[in-house]
């Protein structure tokens, strides 16, 4: 990878100041950014490592929400009894990201800021209607994702934590590419008092999306059979050597039904 300058500030304010340099980038767990830099697909001139910033990691319950710090590692979310008891699908999802060593480094905030179309966390954030908290504002999930690797985050904006409302039931099911282990289709289903939300990752050519026909059908009858008739259009699906758009569209239905069956 190309060389860069390295800063490890101790506060969010200092991190924002360090980001003022041209082509500066935030380093969280580095499990996507460092491989991308090795391939020279990214060449920041300055990395701002958040590891020393106090207060960015941790899991707590605040009223009807589970609040997870942006620098919380996937392994810590996966191992948290608090998360499993409150939002079963979220704990299970964290345990399915990458492999054990990747989960020891990768972070919630890093995954959301990167918004890889095959990443797992965006599905949970969108289906649970989570709120992303940054150093500047609070962003609801429906406004946050803007397409492949695109979000509404500004250049000097840092995610500090995410607030996940606790649903009645939730589950995440993932159909993995057998080689890369990334989601070819991942579906998160969340049922709460206000309705049902279904979010799909891995499949959409604009990244994570909600499947509203399924949401309506499941709101009327929360059962796998209720969404059997929902037609998934292939038009907006990713087509690549791992699977074409028709195949992914079919998988969305199959994986969504599995997620409904697994909801608890």
């Amino acid at each position: 990878m190309h060389n860069f300058e390295y800063a490890a500030p101790a506060s969010v304010a200092d991190a924002v100041a360090a980001l003022a340099k041209p082509d500066a980038k935030v380093l969280a767990g580095g499990q996507t950014l460092l491989p991308t830099m090795k391939q020279r697909l990214a060449a920041p001139t300055q990395l701002v490592d958040l590891r020393k910033v106090a207060g960015l990691a941790g899991i707590s319950r605040e009223g009807d929400a589970v609040v997870i710090g942006a620098m919380t590692r996937h392994a810590d979310v996966a191992a948290s009894p608090l998360v499993h008891d409150a939002i079963k699908g979220l704990g299970a999802l964290a345990g399915l990201i990458g492999d054990p060593a990747v989960r020891h480094r990768g972070t919630l905030g890093g995954s959301l800021a990167n918004n890889d179309p095959a990443a797992d966390y965006p599905a949970a954030v969108l289906a649970l209607g989570a709120t992303i908290v940054t150093n500047k504002r609070e962003i609801v999930a429906d406004d946050y994702f803007k397409g492949l690797f695109e979000t509404v985050l500004g250049e000097d904006e840092i995610i500090t934590k995410v607030k996940f409302p606790i649903p009645e039931k939730s589950a995440y099911e993932k159909f993995r590419n057998p080689a890369s282990r990334y989601a070819m289709v991942g579906v998160f289903v969340a049922k709460s008092k206000t309705g049902v939300r279904v979010a799909v990752t891995g499949a959409g050519s604009s990244g994570v999306f909600r499947q509203k026909e399924m949401e309506a059908a499941l709101a009327a009858n929360f059962a796998a059979d209720a969404i059997k008739g929902v037609k998934i259009a292939a038009a907006n699906m990713i087509s690549d050597l791992h699977g074409d758009a028709d195949y992914r569209a079919h998988l969305v239905g199959v994986v969504a039904r599995r997620a409904v069956e697994a909801s608890a």
Binding site: L27, G30, L34, P35, A101
Partner: peptide, 26 residues
């Protein structure tokens, strides 16, 4: 060298990580 094979796994503060995908500075 792409964090897939695990030949580089070491423990940082007691936890397995891929040392090819971690900066020494971190």
């Amino acid at each position: 060298d792409t964090s897939q094979c695990g030949a580089c796994v070491v423990h940082i503060d007691g936890k397995a990580v891929k040392s090819c995908t971690t900066l020494a500075a971190s």
